[in-house]
């Protein structure tokens, strides 16, 4: 097995709402491990807590409960100052490249910034490395003197990626890095990321709401629903035999490459419930076609059903797998 770089145990993040005593339960007990050289895809609807998990794992917000272990070291309660040297090895790419870059800094300085902070380099070395990084993300070095306003979204995202890989980090978290980009640009960015995975052997967490993108890029996929991982599964297994009813409905909404293939739509009713009033028991029971009474009271725990395939569903054993049941 590959070396784990980030491990989270029972991660919980609640935001208080105004001055009242109610909370937004953004993340509700997440366990995950990211290994070096692996791309873990995290997929879920809007409001499922994807971005919050990403930001909490890097301690950009503080977890309410749980444990975060980076490179074998507990970083859950390190101070901002203690975290700073570690940030050399853990970087992030944000969703919206237009707002993620200081509009008054030059592209060259933006790319060089992590190098300048973390490595003591002479100015000529710094310049060489900056140009090298620009080339690596296929960004023309002419842009190094421009400010972000002169670049397109795809080019800006390349700048963000260059920044993220500048110090050869061991972990890179990508929070919907392609969802604000055109399809044509998106393909180029994904290709670049897959190249970088081979080269850097860093661990990647790729957050997205788009199953197609996740399918293309990930090795392992975490399916998120209301701040819980309902299924953690190797990519092939998810697309061949999704086990959790929510994963099944997600997949059935996803258009397969082969348009003639028979698809069975499993359309969920209603909206994702408010994270302020979490449903009792299994939080998916309000929309689950396979839900029975016990789902309203008991909280499902992750169960290993195949190699590296964890599912949290109470109806796994007694025919809760609705897709195959309907097919039968």
């Amino acid at each position: 097995m590959r070396q784990p770089i980030l491990r989270a145990k029972n991660l919980v993040k609640r935001f208080s709402v105004g001055r009242s005593s109610s909370y937004v339960n953004a993340v509700n007990g997440v366990d995950l491990t990211i290994h070096r050289g692996e791309i873990l895809g995290m997929v879920g609807e809007s409001g499922s807590g994807k971005s919050t998990i990403g930001r909490t794992l890097l301690r950009l917000t503080d977890p309410t409960e749980g444990l975060i272990e980076f490179d074998g070291r507990d970083i859950t309660s390190l101070s901002a100052k203690e975290l700073r040297p570690l940030r050399k090895d853990m970087q992030m790419v944000f969703q919206d490249p237009w707002s993620a870059l200081n509009p008054r800094m030059k592209i060259g300085d933006l790319i060089a910034e992590p190098l300048r902070i973390h490595l003591k380099l002479s100015e000529p070395d710094l310049r060489d490395r900056t140009e090298l990084l620009a080339k690596k993300v296929r960004l023309s070095t002419e842009f190094l003197n421009r400010t972000p306003s002169a670049l397109s979204g795809g080019q800006l995202q390349r700048v963000c990626i260059a920044r993220a890989i500048a110090t050869n980090p061991k972990l890179i978290i990508l929070d919907e890095p392609t969802s604000s980009l055109d399809l044509s640009v998106r393909a180029g960015i994904l290709e670049l990321l897959m190249e970088l995975r081979e080269e850097t052997q860093a661990g990647f967490l790729f957050i997205s709401h788009d199953l197609g993108t996740i399918k293309l890029i990930s090795d392992t996929i975490a399916v998120l629903y209301l701040g819980r991982i309902v299924e953690l599964v190797p990519k092939e297994a998810l697309f061949n035999e999704p086990a959790h009813p929510y994963s099944q409905s997600l997949l059935s909404a996803h258009l397969p490459a082969d348009l003639d293939a028979p698809i069975q739509r499993l359309i969920l009713e209603g909206e994702i419930p408010s994270p302020i009033d979490l449903p009792s028991g299994c939080s998916f029971h309000t929309r689950c076609p396979a839900a029975v009474d016990v789902c309203k009271t008991a909280t499902p725990q992750p169960e290993l059903i195949a190699q590296n395939h964890h599912v949290s569903c109470l109806r796994l054993k007694d025919g809760g797998n609705i897709l195959s049941r309907q097919q039968a």
Partner: peptide, 26 residues
């Protein structure tokens, strides 16, 4: 709490760099 300040924190900027290189010019 803008994105570019968060991205500067994520890059590992010390507070003085965030104040003078990121916030001051803006």
């Amino acid at each position: 709490s803008s994105n570019f300040v968060e991205s500067a924190i994520a890059a590992g900027n010390p507070t003085w760099r965030i104040l003078f290189f990121h916030l001051l010019p803006n």
